[in-house]
Every structure is written in C-alpha cells, then in structure tokens.
Amino acid sequence: MLPNRQRSLMPVLMLAPALLLIAVFILYPLVKAFFYSFEQYVLTAPNQRAFIGLDNFAALADDADFYLSLKNTTIWVLGSLAGQFILGFALALLLEKHFRGRTLYRAVVFSPWAISGFLIAVMWKWLLNPQYGPVNQLLLGAGLMERPIAFLSHPDFALPSVIAANVWYGIPFFAIMLGAGLASIPRELYQAAAIDGAGALQRFVNITVPAMLPVIFAALLLRSIWIFNFADLIWVMTNGGPANKSQILVTYLFTTAYKNLNFGYAGALSVTIFLLLAAGIGAFFLLNRFISVKGRQT
C-alpha cells in the first residue's frame, strides 16, 4: 500500500491548476461583485459610494420590470428547454440507426453548435424580417398567412420568436448528448423485449427512457443554467422589446449595469438571479431523487 502522505498530496496537486484559475479569475471578482449589492454604487456619482445594507434588494422587491423579466425568464427557459429537449431527443433517435451519408448528415445538423450566438441572432433577425425576410416570404407563398407578420416586433410573437431561434440553436447540443446516451444502452435489452413481443412504443417507454434518465437530467440541468444566463439572442434580435415584452433577467441586468450605470442595483439583481437558480436547481435535484427512487420501486 502507498504511504498516506502521497495519498493526500496527489489530488491536491491535480486540482491545483484548475482551482487556481477559477479562484483568481472567477471567485475573486465574484466575491467583489457580490458586495456591490450592499452598496450605493452608481458610476455617475463616484463620490457617493457607500454601504447601504439591503436597500438595493428592497428596491428590487418593488420593481415591476423585475417581475416582468422574471416571468419572461421563466417562459424563456422552460420554452427553450422543452423545445430543445424534445426536438433534440427526436433527432438523436432518428440518428441512432446507421444510414448512408449519416456522417455528412450529422455534420450539417450539428453545425449550429459551432456558430457564435451573436451571428445566430443577426441571421435570425434577418430571416424573420417582415419585408424581405425569407420566413415571411415562404409562409406567404405557401398561403399560410395573408399578410406578413413582424415576428420580432409583435407583442405576442416577440418572445416565442426568440425562443424558436434558441430552440433551433440548442437542438444539436441535446442531439449529441442524448445520442451518445442512446448508443450506450445495451442492445440485448431491446432484443429481449422484442422476443417478449413488445412494440416500438413499449420498448421506448420501458427501456429507452429509464436507461436515459441520468443523461437527460444532467443535460437538462446544465442547459437550464446556460439558457437562463444566455442573453445574446434577445439582446440582438429584440433588445428586450417591444415594451419589455421579451426582456429577461440578464438583459435587464445589462440595462441596469451598463445603461443606468447602477452597479449596486445590478449587484442585487445578480445575487437574486444566483439565489433563484440555486433554488431551482435544488428543487431539480430533489425531483431527480424522487423520480429515481420511484423508478426503482416499480
């Protein structure tokens, strides 16, 4: 057996580079930003910086724009997540069996993953333009509408439109993740079920889904945090408009920090976002445990 000393040093050495980088470039600024939230810190009044306790949070609690953004964020995260997950899963299932040209097909359908969010946003803004955008032209040409719709400027369509673009952007992520998960399910399970006379749907419900649950949960967890904090699409496509109809918490944060220059308030908003996400993820873990326990019972 190895001596104890070496045993305790090894993980420390291995963790050191990663933790050092995180501590210096993320944790340290994060702690500093955290303390903004208790300060009156408006850049245009540099001499009036002062500790004000929870005043920023109190102001946030009375902020109607905050609640509107919170509501929109909920729709944005759930809508994007559901769309990305369902379509990504479907694509993963379709790609499971080999067919000719699968590699090329994969390269094409996974390619959105490789493009920057900013470019995606600019492209979609053009595609959805009511006068010269192809989407409207095609829908008109197919006789599905009578007049063009200004998707990004309509109070009811703005948020769904950016969600649609985000779903499109996120399909490859889920297809890759879930596709590899499918590949790791042992073939024998399906064969046994087929011998027992189970149909395709039954096999999917009884074998595929339970085997995939851990992957699904991990993917949903990582992706929900990511979508929550993903502002590029909305910022470029609608700028939160019209009239805040597509404003989410991070785009609202952008306004408070970089337009109003109120870093104290922005700090309070960031801490609130952090706590909301932590609560959401806590609930998610509980749900995960509940489902896996129940899964084992049946």
């Binding site: 009511p130 006068q131 200004a150």
Partner: peptide, 9 residues
C-alpha cells in the same frame, strides 16, 4: 410605418 418599425433603431 411598417409594422416592425416599433423596434426600429
């Protein structure tokens, strides 16, 4: 004005 002018910059 075009319907999307509401978001014109």
């Amino acid at each position: 004005a075009p319907p999307d002018a509401i978001n014109y910059g």
